[in-house]
Each structure stands twice: as structure tokens, then as C-alpha cells.
Design a binder for these strands. Structure first.
Lengths: 333, 333
DNA sequence: CTGAAAGCGCTAACAA
DNA sequence: TTGTTAGCGCTTTCAG
């Protein structure tokens, strides 16, 4: 059905090897025959068979992108960055949602290995990256996304989460708050742990009391439920730092339902500064991360590693977060 | 580096064809040798080479997903649905953002054809689906996503946009509004046109005045700017229907900046009911579409077409939207 | 039930 | 500059 190089060669009355050269090394084919071949290509609407090429090459210009959940606006933006960088370099992106589950992640890693993808960008579901070692050993370019990895075997691109936590806490402390709640997500998520470390650093330095609430997931409804429960336990902080904006929005809902005003009764700081932070019920003060840039940079990194393995040195890129002050935070009453 | 079927065959002391059978037709291999082969597979950590398989098969268990922009929350949810359905069936998803640009779309379609993907899910950037005909002719399972296509050559999965528009307008008319503004997006987007048709049907039926504002894109900032301009022109509707929630949020911003209260001065209806609609500055009344289900159903459709071409009949699936009333709409003053 | 061999479409030596 | 050819790893006849 579809035309192959053989058909093109026949039509142009050249050998199949010449057609290959027209495609990959045009300069080593005489202009005359090149023209003839290109005309045949156009006439037949020939489109190269990528799997065949990949079979020869052993790997492909495909980037496997493994994120916890593309529906999380943070990763949506990251994915856009990845996709744009990939597109520019002629790569294609396979999207994988791990849902933070090791089993799902493993399954995808296996699929990606089976596809012989050239590169993998991953936000690992767990601490170690053992399942990745094998890929790396096989020559796949791997970079850790939004994750502090060692420079050992792979690049990593992340945002300084400890600094972000510190920024959030310092902002509140500067406003006079002495009793702060930290609405954390699952403690085994490294980003959560790092943000917490930054917050602790700031609160301890100023001898501020920090209470901890743990939400089961990083979603608005989980935040809502967790704060609801904390309120029921009698917790009454004057300010709250949330592990991400979704949690913050959920927290806001719970707080308002309980009759508290924001920021008069409770100040709230989110994390991520997703698009909607500015449009929330009370415009949300949040820690902004360069999401798109993160994805873009990560993709460029693995692409360059793919292009030239020996010239590549693993690096650890770290973006700086930034606090965006809006109306959800105010001076302590 | 990586183990191949040849290595497995050698280790298990069988022929390579037998290994293939263990993988694809286990029942036609004696339990004894099957065990031996499986052990060898495990021992070598063998993972099949998908490109090689695809080369033989001529196509692959890959779904190309072409959407205007994954960063649009509507398509984010759709993508999750696609991904989950794909994963279940052992398919993998290649993500493509067309940005509504025909050139980008064409480029991606070419890439997907080159990859010999088994199926394509696409929200076409333009009316026609000419560029798809070739793919379809070559045996690729194609389905139109969020798009009213004919049943001719491909399945389509969409939400009844005309009904959605009607629902939105009727809701406002029921609240007593007689002067409604329609904040449209680019008129060449079919969904926009259909929603508009539904609104017109409702307004004409009740002899309600409809003013039209056009935003250049379906984003919050475009909505903000468009409404800003309309206000400057002296437009003063008592209610507004927006082509999607992002536009509605932008409109809300512009309106509030101009000192108008929602819904006391202006009622607003959005479209899509994205997650944040409920958490917007004023919780947004919106037309909800079953986004995840849309993606899931679309993926299942092309997968079934892929699995059994002759048993497949193209169909047109249509989901029904539903209006979710929140606080951004109220009776006319 | 198992082995041998052809060939999917392409690239990369190597010859001519 | 162009043609020829040997595989890349796998599935699929066809023999045995």
C-alpha cells in the first residue's frame, strides 16, 4: 500500500542505496540524480518507515515522558515544554502517567525499553532509580525531571524546592505569623520533603511554631479533606503553607466552609503558581516554578546526550523558584 | 548489549522460532520447553524489540494523539482518558500539540505516518480532513476527537455542542436575562460555531438580544482583553456566555476590574467545567462535558478498529453536556 | 511440537 | 558518484 524506498528507487531508476543517500547524505549524490529521486519521492508520496530505520539504528528519536499525572497542571506545562523542544529536534514524545505508582511506572519503563526509545524523562515515583540503571546501561539517555538526582549516571533538572519552602515560610514570618501550618502531601514524594526542609529551616531559625497536616494526595479534594480533619482536631494556625496549589485551593474551600476569612483569619501560600492561582476564590500567593522551561531544558539535555553521547557530561540543572504575592496572605491580626 | 531472541534461543537451546511462539502462541509449545524458554527470558531480562516487530507487522500499537494544546485543561482530561484506555490495551500514546496550526498539524501527521502508528485520534485544526484520507487509506484507524465528523471514513466522538450552547442560553433566559453577550473564540473552530448555533437557537426562540464578542484565542488573557475592549465600546449586557471556562475567567477578571459585580451586575456562564471552575473568584456556572470519558471512548474505538478491521463499523458517538449551576449566574436585577 | 529460512524497510560498508 | 549486499530482531510459512 505505502510506497517504500524500493518503489522510489524503481521509479527514479536508481539503486535503493542511492535513495537512502538522498535522504541522509544529500551532498554525496549528484544534483541530477538527486532531483530525479526527489521527484519520485514526491510523486509517490513516500514517507520513510521509522520502525525500519530504528531497527537498524537500535534506538529511536523518541522521548518517553513519565510523569505522575499529566492532569496535574504543573506537569501539563512541563509536558508542553518537553514537547516543543522535542518537536524542534525532530523527536516525538510518548506520554506515560505513573500515578505515583511503582507498578505503573515499572510497566511503562518496560514498554519504553521495548520501544527502544532514545531518551527518557522521568519524575520517579520512588527514591531510588534502580529500574533506570538498566536503561542507562543500555545507552538510553535519561534525565530526572523535577527531581534532585545525583550527577552520577543521569542529568537532572529541578527547581530548588528547599529554597521554595523557605521563601514561602519567610514571607509569612515577615508578615508576623508565629504559628504556621504545613499542609504536606505524601511524605515519600521528594519534592514535598524538600519543601518541608526549607520551611523547617526558616521556622526554626525564627523559633516559629510549625504544625503539620498530611494530605493523602496532591489534589484539591485531598487538601479539603485534610484541612477539614485538622480543623475538627482543633488546629488553629494563623497561616498555612501548602505543598501545591491544588492542595491550597482545597484548603481554602475547607477553611471558608468553616467560616474563616482569607487572609484575615488565615493566610495561605500555595506552591506552583498554576494558571488558576490568580483566579482562585481569593487570588493565591504562591511559589512559582518555571515549569515550561523545566520541561524544555530537560528535553534539550537528553536530546543532546542522544545526539552525542561522548561529548555529553551529566549535569544538574537547578531552576530558582520565586514567590508571587497576591491576596491570600496578609499581616497577622 | 540488550538480549535478543537469538540469545534467548541459544540459552534455552531451542530455535529462535520457538522463542517467538512462546511469546505469541504459548499454547502451541510444549510446557517443558516453554518453561525452559521462559526461564531463559527471565534470566537474560529479555525485552522484545518493538520496532522489529512493527517492521514485520507494518504497523504498531501506538496511538497518535493530536490536540490543539495539552495545556488546555479540557484536552488534558481527554488525554488522561486516552492514555488510560491505551495502557489497558497495551498501546502507547504519542502526544502532539497542533496549536490549531495547520502547518504543525501536517508536520505531526507526517511524523505519525512515518512511525506507522496503528491509530490516530485527532481534533482537526481545520474543517476538512483531507490530510487524513491518505492515512485512512493506508489502514490507520482514525477517529475524530471532539469533532462532528461524518461517519464516512472514520469514527468520531464528540459532545453535543449545539445542545450545550442552548443549555447555557436557556439557563440565562430562564433567569430573566434579555440582553446576552456571547464571548466567542476564533469562529473557524467548529466547537465554537456549534455552541453559537445552540445559543442562537435559544435566543431567537425567545426574542432575546445577542451581542457577539470575539476573542482571538481560547485563553484567559484573550478573554480578558476582548471583554476589556467590548466594555470600552460601551457594551452592557446583563449576562454573558463564554466559549470556554478560560475565556470566562478572563472575562470575569476584566469585568471585576471595571467595577462590576458577578452575578449582581453580570451573570457569567462558562463552558467545559474544568476543575477550577468551582474555585474561581466567583464559582463559575458552566457547561460540563464528559472529558475523560470522551478520551477513553475515542481510544477504545480506534483500538477496536485496529484489532479487527473488518468487524468494525464506523460510528458517531455523541456525549451529552450538562449545565452545572454555581454562583456566577443569578436573576436579572 | 520444533527447526530452518525468507523477508519486513532501511542503513552502512564495500565495490565498481 | 552509484550499485550491491549484509544484516538489524522479529514473525511466519513450510518442512521435518
Amino acid at each position: 500500500m505505502t510506497a517504500s524506498m524500493k518503489d522510489v528507487a524503481a521509479l527514479a531508476a536508481v539503486s535503493i542505496g542511492t535513495v537512502s543517500n538522498v535522504l541522509n547524505n544529500p551532498q554525496m549524490v549528484s544534483p541530477k540524480t538527486r532531483d530525479r529521486v526527489e521527484q519520485a519521492i514526491a510523486q509517490l508520496g513516500f514517507i520513510p518507515n521509522a520502525p525500519a530505520r530504528q531497527l537498524r539504528a537500535g534506538r529511536s528519536k523518541v522521548i518517553g515522558l513519565v510523569v505522575p499525572d499529566i492532569a496535574n497542571p504543573f506537569f501539563t506545562e512541563v509536558a508542553r515544554g518537553v514537547e516543543d523542544a522535542a518537536m524542534e529536534a525532530g523527536f516525538v514524545v510518548i506520554l506515560c502517567n505513573s500515578d505515583e505508582q511503582a507498578a505503573r511506572e515499572d510497566r511503562y519503563l518496560r514498554v519504553l525499553e521495548s520501544q527502544r526509545v532514545g531518551a527518557i524523562l522521568i519524575t520517579p515515583a520512588r527514591k531510588g532509580i534502580k529500574p533506570l540503571q538498566r536503561l542507562i546501561a543500555n545507552g538510553t539517555a535519561v534525565a530526572l525531571l523535577d527531581h534532585e538526582g545525583g550527577t552520577r549516571d543521569a542529568c537532572s533538572v529541578s527547581v530548588d524546592d528547599a529554597l521554595g519552602g523557605q521563601l514561602a515560610a519567610s514571607h509569612l514570618i515577615g508578615l508576623g505569623h508565629r504559628s504556621i501550618a504545613w499542609l504536606a502531601g505524601p511524605p515519600d514524594i521528594p519534592q514535598v520533603a524538600d519543601r518541608q526542609a526549607g520551611i523547617l529551616r526558616a521556622t526554626e531559625e525564627h523559633s516559629v511554631l510549625l504544625e503539620r497536616i498530611v494530605a493523602g494526595q496532591m489534589t484539591a479534594s485531598a487538601g479539603d479533606a485534610a484541612v477539614d480533619a485538622a480543623l475538627a482536631r482543633g488546629m488553629t494556625p494563623s497561616a498555612m503553607v501548602c505543598a501545591n496549589d491544588l492542595l491550597a485551593i482545597g484548603a481554602m474551600r475547607a477553611l471558608m466552609r468553616a467560616g474563616m476569612r482569607i487572609p484575615q483569619d488565615v493566610s495561605i501560600v500555595g506552591y506552583d503558581d498554576i494558571d488558576f492561582a490568580a483566579s482562585a476564590a481569593v487570588p493565591l500567593t504562591s511559589v512559582r516554578q518555571p515549569k515550561y522551561e523545566l520541561g524544555f531544558a530537560a528535553a534539550q539535555l537528553v536530546i543532546s546526550e542522544f545526539e552525542d553521547r561522548r561529548a555529553h557530561a551529566h549535569q544538574r540543572v537547578r531552576f530558582q523558584p520565586q514567590i508571587v504575592v497576591r491576596e491570600s496572605t496578609g499581616s497577622v491580626a
